[in-house]
């Protein structure tokens, strides 16, 4: 059943697909409460389905050895609590691109445009992925606020 959750190039899941994925993960967790992958998939599906409050509740009971600080911070960001999101991001020991990406968005929400600009400049310099165009658009938005 987990194979259905496997992403493929032509698969563009809807919120409904993620609702189904949550159900599959719940089934798997009922069979094996220690299934860390099912738990991880459930958290991702909850975020993608927009169930941010429920997701934070789930993460409070994270018994697994999984680093889900990014997902936790993202939920707080979407629930319009950028300060809490920032607090979680500040606690990340080895931040990756995704953490800095979210930090930039949190700084934008906090209207800290100069810091936001610096984070985007660093991400754009150091990253080479399929989101370069979106980042440059975001950087333009930040620059417009600085002008």
């Amino acid at each position: 059943e987990l194979a259905a959750l496997r992403p493929s190039a032509d698969f563009d899941p809807t919120a409904d697909d993620y609702e189904k994925a949550i159900k599959v993960c719940n089934k798997l967790l009922n069979l094996d409460a220690h299934d860390a992958t099912a738990y991880h998939c459930k958290i991702v599906a909850m975020v993608q389905a927009g169930k941010f409050q429920d997701c934070i509740k789930q993460l409070e009971n994270n018994k697994f050895d999984l680093d889900l600080q990014f997902e936790d911070a993202y939920c707080h960001y979407r629930l319009n609590d950028p300060l809490k999101a920032m607090k979680i991001l500040d606690g990340v020991i080895n931040p990756q691109v995704k953490h800095n990406e979210l930090r930039a968005q949190v700084l934008y929400r906090l209207e800290q445009y100069e810091n936001c600009f610096t984070v985007y400049r660093d991400i754009i310099r150091s990253s080479d992925d399929k989101y370069e165009t979106e980042r440059k658009t975001n950087l333009s938005a930040v620059t417009a606020q600085l002008a």
Binding site: E101, Q105, Q145
Partner: peptide, 21 residues
């Protein structure tokens, strides 16, 4: 309001399931 993408959402990704399949 200027266009601003939620790129962080794209980083919320399913874990690798290869070891499970």
């Amino acid at each position: 309001k200027p266009l601003f993408y939620d790129v962080a959402l794209y980083h919320v990704e399913m874990p690798s399931l290869d070891h499970k399949l």
